[in-house]
């Protein structure tokens, strides 16, 4: 239990938040993620390029993370407005002949991918931390806040615990994503064993009286 609230920006700005493992975002897909309390649509074009935007279509507010990707364009699921990787609206299907107004643009965050991890940042200054040769395993959500987990696990970007290397992504409402990495070169059986350890860790955190 902690009584002193920790501000997430404490320590080292600029902030990059790990939001997904590269392996979990295939080409031509979009997913919802949350960074610093902001809901974002994270998506990858068919070419592999990434974008992270406010998860809200400027037209009628539909979550863009529910949209679909054709080539390097994301289309909103509601009326099909189509946006390029820069967030610029390029097509409004209700008016096929119309060149969309340049002002129709979705606010974007910076996004970068390194050693199998996707990071986002509102300002985009600096570079995300280097996780070296560690191999991304899987991400899982714990029903405990980042602060509560850090009180238990300690600070630092990559936290070593129980043979796993953990990146923390705090979510609203007292939840936190653990992005688990392992040492390099694990075979399939080793990966499964590590995944089962991660599951056990979550159970321990959620059952623990000390982590509220």
């Amino acid at each position: 239990m902690t009584d002193t609230p920790r501000t997430p920006s404490q320590g080292t700005p600029p902030q990059w938040t790990p939001v997904a493992l590269s392996r979990d975002l295939a080409p031509a897909t979009a997913i919802p993620v949350i960074a610093e309390g902001t809901e974002l649509a994270l998506w990858r074009g068919r070419s592999g390029r990434l974008a992270a935007w406010h998860d809200r279509c400027p037209h009628r507010g539909m979550r863009l993370s529910q949209g679909f990707v054709r080539d390097d364009m994301l289309s909103c699921l509601y009326h099909g407005w189509r946006y390029d990787l820069e967030g610029q609206c390029r097509k409004i299907p209700a008016h096929p002949e119309l060149e969309p107004n340049k002002a129709i643009c979705v606010p974007a965050w910076s996004v970068t991918e390194a050693t199998g991890i996707i990071w986002v940042s509102e300002t985009g200054s600096g570079a995300p931390p280097d996780t070296g040769a560690l191999a991304p395993l899987r991400s899982l959500t714990v029903e405990r806040s980042e602060d509560a987990l850090r009180d238990h696990l300690g600070d630092g970007v990559v936290i070593e615990f129980d043979g796993l290397h953990l990146l923390l992504q705090g979510l609203p409402q007292g939840r936190c994503v653990l992005h688990a990495l392992t040492g390099p070169g694990l075979d399939a059986a080793g990966q499964r064993a590590a995944s089962h350890r991660l599951e056990a860790l979550r159970t321990r955190f959620e059952d623990s009286e000390d982590i509220a």
């Binding site: 997904a20 979990d24 295939a26 997913i31 991400s139 959500t141 994503v177």
Partner: peptide, 12 residues
């Protein structure tokens, strides 16, 4: 379903 990457891949 946002927390479940493997379920998302399976659904696709």
């Amino acid at each position: 379903l946002a927390p479940y990457a493997a379920i998302r891949a399976w659904s696709r």
